[in-house]
Design a protein around this nucleic acid. Structure first.
Lengths: 237, 237
DNA sequence: GCAAAAGTGTTAATCTTACACCCATGC
DNA sequence: GCATGGGTGTAAGATTAACACTTTTGC
């Protein structure tokens, strides 16, 4: 059994044997990526017997000396090697029976990362990117958590410059539109999309063009510096 | 010292002496009311020495056999005597130093109640309704929690039929508009407001009129039955 | 020259805002 | 009859949605 799984299971078993008044708190990260025109989520094979064969989100218990955001960044860094990623708290799930090893309340975060980033380094054989649309069943209540986070993401993309976190630094408007279409699971009109994005004034024209294409290349853009924020505006919904 | 305060303090002190790995989880309820054209929030004098003289939100530790919503409903019922109130989770606050007695992570809920309801029975001398606009400083990080919940409430009122939870069953459009104005802290145009509400089709015309007024009485309305929901749509933001 | 995608503007429909007059009631 | 708020419609402006043709590139 790989080292960090052993650690996690041990910690949870310890908790399930502590006195009745104990409640553990964890964070779970819904790590979204984007590839091949599909929205992906990073999952790991569940290490619990009850869920054998099922995948689960990446999470861990919160340590006494770290706040929730730090715990989420730690999970992200430990699993992906990436820092400075976009992360936002979504909801806390506290159902009594949600964890088979004992009472565990979990706070869900969603995160957006560039799946092609050089720093990305999946440190575990059982970590895989799954197409969000193909996911049927997950361990624990993680399908509900995923759905809740996906809904939140969809509610944000038109008002906040977050989709860019899924893309490389330079991108064309086509790539951007396809990312929006993957997230929203819908087709968008090209002209209207471009107008809508132009009005928001999020983009910097790089005066560069795409290369190595078998068709007319598009202009390349980057997100303006002032919008490249790791954390969202103060906790709101 | 009143009984339930003693209980809460005792529980927290116990936790602060348990081993380092312990984290307690609580819920805090931002209970909004509406009176005299002002948005109010129910607060209690803090029972902690560190915060003497300050008010705090109503909260309690989560018990091992109840989920987060149940804990919030319990706090609400114990403090106000009211059941079936509107309640919605907003955010979880987990900063390391946020509670002087030890590590306490708290999930914030906001709630809307009819301040004139017969069942309302504030069971404690130190419980008071405070105008949201007048609140400067609260115990713990409760000012931040209040602001976060207020922001969430403001984001919801135009899209979801929640304001009605602050009003009596029968209300005039003027009363409704004044409640919106109190929440949004802004003046609204009467004709435009009525059009906007009419389009949503939330209201049932009761064919009754206001009485005992020194001016022309308005029609009375009620929220249509299908919108009288205690819990919001499944956890989203 | 053909395939593929880039780039671009107009019109109709919808939604939002601003704004003013007459009416019903209690005193 | 006066004070107070109830009730109502319209026009201008802003936003959104639908829609098609020409251009550039690689092959």
């Amino acid at each position: 059994m790989p080292k960090e799984q052993a650690l996690k299971t041990a910690a949870l078993e310890k908790i399930s044997h502590l006195d009745y008044f104990n409640i553990a708190i964890s964070v779970d990260c819904v790590i979204f990526g984007y590839d091949n025109k599909e929205l992906k989520v990073l999952l790991i094979k569940s290490d619990l017997e009850e869920f054998s064969g099922l995948y689960s989100l990446l999470g861990d218990l919160v340590r006494p000396d770290e706040d929730l955001e730090s715990a989420s960044y730690r999970v992200l860094f430990d699993r992906t090697g990436m820092e400075d990623v976009y992360l936002e708290q979504v909801h806390t799930f506290g159902g009594i029976g949600r964890h088979p090893s004992g009472r565990v309340i979990t706070t869900a975060y969603y995160s957006l990362i560039d799946i092609t980033h050089h720093d990305l380094n999946l440190n575990h054989n059982d970590l895989h990117w799954h197409s969000v649309n193909d996911i049927r069943k997950l361990a624990f209540d993680h399908k509900l958590i995923l759905n809740t986070c996906l809904q939140r993401l969809r509610n944000q993309v038109m008002d906040h410059p977050v989709v860019f976190n899924l893309l490389q630094d330079k991108f064309s408007l086509r790539e951007l539109q396809e990312a929006y279409e993957a997230i929203l699971d819908t087709k968008l009109d090209r002209r209207n999309f471009r107008k809508k994005i132009a009005v928001k004034d999020w983009l910097q024209d790089l005066n560069e063009m795409e290369t190595n294409l078998s068709h007319r290349p598009g202009k390349l853009y980057a997100l303006k510096k002032q919008y490249r924020s790791v954390s969202p505006k103060t906790a709101v919904g």
